[in-house]
Amino acid sequence: MVVGFSVNLEILKQLLVGFIQNEVGKMGFNKVVLGLSGGVDSSLCAYLAALALGKENILGVMMPYKTSNPESLRHAELVVKELRIRSLTVDITPMIDAYFQTFPEVDHIRRGNKMARERMTILYDQSAAENALVLGTSNKTELLLGYGTLFGDMASALNPIGDLYKTQVRLLAHHLGVPQVIIDKKPSADLWLGQSDEEELGFTYDEVDKVLYYLVDKRYSCADLIEKGYPADFVHSVYQKIQNSQFKRRLPIIAKVSERTIDRDFRYPRDWGR
């Protein structure tokens, strides 16, 4: 294990639970809605949220598509059962299929993105119905690599695990008692049959987390990392992924015209006045 991933999990838990309580509370809410995919990221978020707000204040939404791996739904249901949180299942097949009837030839990337965005609209609608906030479940690894759908699974009001690498998500999930079967299974966005994150990315999370940790957290240059023994093409491809996905981590850019432009010279925190 790389130094920096092994952390005091009790402090980490305390910090993230406090984050949810504080940031949800100060916006005038006491509930969150989150999508449960059956994967380790959303499962961990559900566990953290239940600790922070109480099981009755969490709505876990399961949104399978007809080609989704049935195991995903089973694992999401396992989380619901273990935590005794409220849940809702919305099959997105009719909405997705209705849309793609008009565009039958599209590739699985477009289909996958559409599904992610369909789920986002459901979560936001449910959050309005529940008077709740949408809890994000993207981890630092995927945010840095851009391995997520803009305005889809990346959309949320607040995200407790966006500064944790996948490796740390697994450690904390284990610490909080997320079922081991969820932690151990092969990570998948499950946007098409048999999809595997690591196959699609071309490297394992264990490998890439180390490179990301050194590049981002420890400010190593690519040259430093290659000197340290990491393969040059691997290091460069990771760097490229970070650079090419920068747009996903920012609000849309605005053409500057006036003397005071939003987010340029009009700078306020989100927690303005709260």
Partner: peptide, 11 residues
């Protein structure tokens, strides 16, 4: 601001 979680008992 709190930052830096390592194996220690505090930040």
């Amino acid at each position: 601001p709190g930052r830096g979680v390592d194996l220690g008992e505090k930040l």
